[in-house]
Simulated scan of single mutants.
Amino acid sequence: MPTPPRRLGARRRRPAVLAMATALIAAGGLGGAALYNSSGQRIAVLALARDVPMGQVLSPDDLTVAHIAGDPALHPLDAQDLSRTVGLRATTDLKRGSLLVKADVTSDPATQPGQQIVGIAAKHSQLPATRLQPGLQILVVNTSDGKADGPTTRTPDTMTAVVAMVGRPDTDGSTVIDVAVGPADGPRLAQWVASGKFQVILAPRTAGGS
């Protein structure tokens, strides 16, 4: 009795089916990877490299570039805005590691037209314990003796000013504060600062501008 021929066609189809299945699985994996890369795309944005107090002008050392996953809920400034952001003032206290958004900075000047800026290098004992911030109204008191005749106590000279910027404390504990005063008061305040005999106090909240 003759032996029936082998079904070569069936065996040949099996490797083809396996190859097609493998190709489909690989294609599915590549598609998934592409979808993951698309949804997890990282963008370059601006972040804070160190703490920046409110009112301080941003320098290149204050900023860094961070790469984060794109999220429509986040609106940080793009890394390409770095050169335009340097020189702007902080509108609030900025913390190291946080992302920088448009509302965090402003180009508005810290002083009014006609005002003069005087730098006050003050020791911690010459400043109130309350941390000074830009926009806060203060009184600078001249504490020199004045060489008044007799035992009569003379009312010390005072000057109203507005804090424009607060620098970082130096190694000796002193802090430089830029204050805005009227055009007639700048030279007089500079003399008080040069003598080192002055005290900074907080102005009453109800006090008007000078």
Rank of each mutant, 00 (worst) to 15 (best):
V163G: 03
D62E: 09
G119V: 06
D149Y: 11
T155R: 12
G114S: 03
K197C: 05
A148V: 15
A161S: 07
V17L: 14
Q191D: 14
A161I: 01
P151I: 08
V118W: 00
V118R: 01
L74A: 09
I177C: 05
D81L: 11
L35M: 07
G55H: 08
A34I: 09
A69I: 15
T130N: 05
D149V: 13
T3V: 12
G186C: 07
L35P: 01
S107E: 02
T175H: 05
A27C: 10
A69G: 13
S195Q: 12
A184N: 12
S195K: 14
R11D: 08
L82R: 15
G150D: 09
L100F: 08
V52Q: 04
H67E: 14
G87L: 03
M1R: 08
A79E: 10
R13H: 01
G97N: 01
P113D: 01
D145H: 13
G182W: 01
I177W: 06
S174E: 11
R205D: 15
A23F: 01
G29V: 09
A190S: 15
D71P: 11
A122Y: 02
S107R: 07
L63F: 12
V101N: 08
D93S: 12
Q133R: 11
A23H: 02
T130I: 08
T171M: 11
L63K: 12
V140C: 05
R7E: 14
P187A: 11
V141K: 09
G87V: 01
G119I: 02
L63S: 13
P5S: 10
S174N: 14
P5D: 11
